[in-house]
Amino acid sequence: MTAIMQPGFWVFILTMAGIYGIFSLGLQVQYGVGGILNFGHVGMMALSSYTMAILVISHGINFWIAAASGVAVAALGGAFLGLTTLRLRGDYFSIVSIAFSEIVRYVIYNSDNLTGGVQGSLAIPVIGDNYPSYTDTWDSLVNHIRDFLQPRLGDYVDRDFVMGVLVWITLAILLLLVSRIEKTSWARVLRATREDDDVPAALGKNVFRFRLQAVIIGSIIGGIAGIYWGLESTLLSPDDFLTLVTFYGWMILILGGATKVKGLPIAAIFFGFLYGGTRFFTFWPFSIIDSSQRAYIRIMIIGFALIVLMMRRPQGIFGKRQEMVLE
């Protein structure tokens, strides 16, 4: 029970919550506005973080260029998924999207020469000179900020704290940007398409284009989450990108109220505490079972909390109830 007392632990939880929040924001654009059910979102995170890591470690490419390339590859992943599948009915897209992220994961798993395979990013082969870890450039930035802030704010400002702040600043900027986008007529058309294709099409809107753009924007945001994911965990493993992660993103989205962005950061924190807090269910009656089983219990408790919330507030924390019940 000691870790629960450590501020560092809660900083970690909040940082993860922020990263999950960014991740979930990508889904919000796709589903909350466009009604697109993407269950392969984690694939975009995998693409961006691995692209970044490989470019830095194998080829010694500048971190910032590598990170931007990672996000670009995630966008391409979204474009590929959308171009191949968005013309099909919505439920086909959902199924294919899961397959997409699983394929990404398996490819990472089995491409030892490129990705390090099972051993993760530590085993990414170095080509030529010995290049640094992909976090070096970032770490020196974080350390600079820490050295600047620590004397002014106090000793609690450590590397992790700065990381958390940067994650949340990124989330705040993205939230602002997305809420702007969602006020445009582009978003209005997209909202129409979540109900019906015929009406917008008959009014001259290319429904496919709008959906494709939504998927790509969501994938870019997912890609940004992937970069932070890689930086926070400092090493990557294919098992970081299980479909379960996508569902965590969904959980946050639904908790916050899918159609509005303002509930999302609160839902992300809520999720973070639920996820992190339930780790400490080591007391009776949870102490009866062993720790690996407890991990499942934790997920069950999260699921149960979600069900209760959805029964009480199907629209999420901030959503509009009327929008859920109109016939």
Partner: peptide, 16 residues
């Protein structure tokens, strides 16, 4: 056919 979860005004604006 109307888009039920858009406002009446937004439905119209869709026509632009």
């Amino acid at each position: 056919k109307v888009i039920k979860r858009l406002s009446v005004l937004e439905n119209l604006m869709l026509g632009g």
